[in-house]
Nucleic acid binder design. Sequence first.
RNA 1: GCCCCGGUAGCCCAAUCGGCAGAGGCAAUCGACUCAAACUCGAUCCAGUGUGGGUUCGAAUCCCACCCGGGGCACCA
Length: 843
Amino acid sequence: MTQTHDGTAGTPAPEEAGRYDAHAMQERWLPVWDSLAPFRSGAAGDERPKKYVLDMFPYPSGDLHMGHAEAYALGDVVARYWVQRGYDVLHPIGWDAFGLPAENAAIKRGLDPRGWTYDNIAQQRASMRRYACSFDWDRVLVTCDPQYYRWNQWLFLRMHEKGLAYRRPSLVNWCPNDQTVLANEQVVQGLCERCDTPVTKKKLTQWYLRITDYADRLLDDMSQLEGSWPDKVLSMQRNWIGRSTGADVRFRIEGRDEPVTVYTTRPDTLYGATFFVVAADSDLAAELAADAPEQVRQEFGAYVEQVRAASDIDRLATDRPKTGVFLHRYAVNPATGEPMPVWAADYVLADYGHGAIMAVPAHDQRDLDFARAHDLPVRVVVDVRGEDGEPLPDPAESGVATAGDGVLVNSGPLTGLRKAEAIAAMTERLAEEGTGAATTNYRLRDWLISRQRYWGAPIPIVHCDACGEVRVPDEQLPVELPPAEGLDLKPKGSSPLGGAEDWVNVDCPSCGGAARRDTDTMDTFVDSSWYFLRFCSPDRDDVPFDQAEVERWMPVGQYVGGVTHAILHLLYSRFFTKVLFDLGMVSFTEPFSRLLNQGMVLMGGSAMSKSRGNLVRLSEQLDEHGVDAIRLTMAFAGPPEDDIDWADVSPAGSAKFLARAWRLARDVTSQPGSDPATGSAPLRAVTHRTLHDAQQLVESFRFNVAVARTMELVNATRKAIDDPGVGPADPAVREAVEAVAILLGLYAPYTAEDMWAQLGHEPCVARAGWPAVDPALLVEDTVTCVVQVQGKVRDRLEVPPGIGEDELRELALASERVQAALAGRSLRTVVVRAPKLVNIVPA
RNA sequence: GCCCCGGUAGCCCAAUCGGCAGAGGCAAUCGACUCAAACUCGAUCCAGUGUGGGUUCGAAUCCCACCCGGGGCACCA
């Protein structure tokens, strides 16, 4: 390190030519920062209060792009702000490094995914350094390192012990392109989230995590996050969990010993249940059809085949006709004793509730559509009125089911009750008769975590003919992935690990006999469900995380990332945290106290993509405008959660502003330490007001406004320097420019550092500390009072802020312009809001 | 279909409690500097807040209805 930054020693100013050169600054300060490591966190004896600021870690697919640039710029504002405020900030970074892109690239090039992955990590890491991310580089973690995924496996085993990890056969989502199963959360509109291929169904035995056990807590604990997480995310999670309350009702089926249970949210409408529907692809449907006449059996068989062949996309279409097959069986309505025809149909889902429903066509649109298509009876049992108080038209004729509130009719003892009363009464009666009970259902399904692909953490289970599923003992962890060399990684529907004979065949840890390893790997969302804990003690090799360190830092005080993870990653992480709480490993139940979702970076109104031809390359932007200008543009573009259209913003404008700010530092002629109290009072007021407001603004994520206020301060300072009455030697000017350097440090670290050096200070400006705001300077000596006549501004008065109402009223009424506007009319009211406003209302 | 968010100048966006519609920027135009241009500096231009009602002394802000845009969930019984 040379003394180039040492302005006090008479060495040349950093930019002696007097020109702002973003690239020269980058070259100058990077090595300085490397050696000073201003963002190292958690040092022994560091007494600063702790704060955990976390950016969602990236997937290492090639170099950083514009989206990363936005996310990391915004996360950095928050992290740097708290450092400046005197906190010991944990701001780590790592890589979510397992996953399909690496594997697919490896297949394409015939290489091991490791090489591709670590090359990309090295590239991203270098880019992050240049981008001046304030990461603690001593805490880097990479999920595909055995030292990391070892603890994935360890956590899996703990869950397995608790029965929270289990294997079962079921109909699962299958992506024919990626040749692997998908979790429910990874299917978007019937398409694979990753590659947009239509998802099909397959019957497979797979590993699940029992997230449904935590549905209530995942839902109810959201009250803790209210106000600290975006409403949008909370509502998405609520929707996703989809809790509904209702009742289970048991129906006797003629010719079957066991009754069949259905779930309904409307037990009050039991008297209106006129038929019964079972999911066509359910076991129950097959069983009921088996005893039906031959012709029905054939019809049913053909129907089921057709249903199975239909993709999710077909199923999702809302205007599809309601199809089904009458099974020639009858269920008995427990309320009326009437026989109800049993149909098999695909509008009933096999894996929700019990895969069978009581159909109440009068009050459920889907049932009504089905009844009308198949000529089944419709019976109204709730008198639902419109807004005008008139009864709604008969659903059987109108084709519109009446699902709203009303009074029960044709319903035996329920008749005359309102909907809510009737639900309670019927639930009670079912319980008394032993034919039903109140119950809760969820849309949320258990989390399917097995993947039939190579590049993931192996599931640490051994299958033994004698002992069954055997957990790999902790001391044998990690179960390392075998080298890809010699394995056929091409997707073929079963895990490539099956081909690694030496790896698969092991002795059973329990009986020592011949056994085989489980060949599936874990969903990469398992990796990211606890990485924030690992950052607290990334080097511990005896435990997944150091509990004392976790208690010191967690929960994450500020999490920053894209809304694309609103459900998947955030729900899974919340789930893991609750499991770890139950295991006694953490003392909190929510991992992320505050969440900021940044928007996306668009170009010309749409998402950037190579195929669309609107790709903006980050590296080119950085070369053209410099790191600081790009970071500043990201912060200034608008509210962080809004999308940024790169066509609407001006990185060149940002660079211009930075140069303007930088020139202020160049022009200051006073020495460090000069007493600002002797300087220009008006400029001091602006400086302190700006510092004061910036705190509020940054803490509430209004970075764009905070930048605008910094621009104001720059403008005011420039005016002061050019004002002969103030000038560059005024200590208030120095105070203002130092404030600018510190404020800009949040968005434009290179420029700020250079300014700091020009001002004669040692690096780093990032650790300079937030200047104390003098409350006395925030008090204005006069306030502009607006005088309105009938709501229209007629005059302005300069008044002291503490002026009394009566005095202000007199002053306002004395105004010539007001009198002119009144034109002699008498007064009705005079509204006085001292000191800012008087409104005079003439009669 | 249900739920949520938003609509302010040509554009991106501000506007603590209901109190002057404009903080900041982009673009445009003009001027100064320049041989000229770039840079820089200065100035100017531009909306009455999606529409219609209501509450109020006073509404971008609160209420109602509607229009437009974005998002989430969606045969979940």
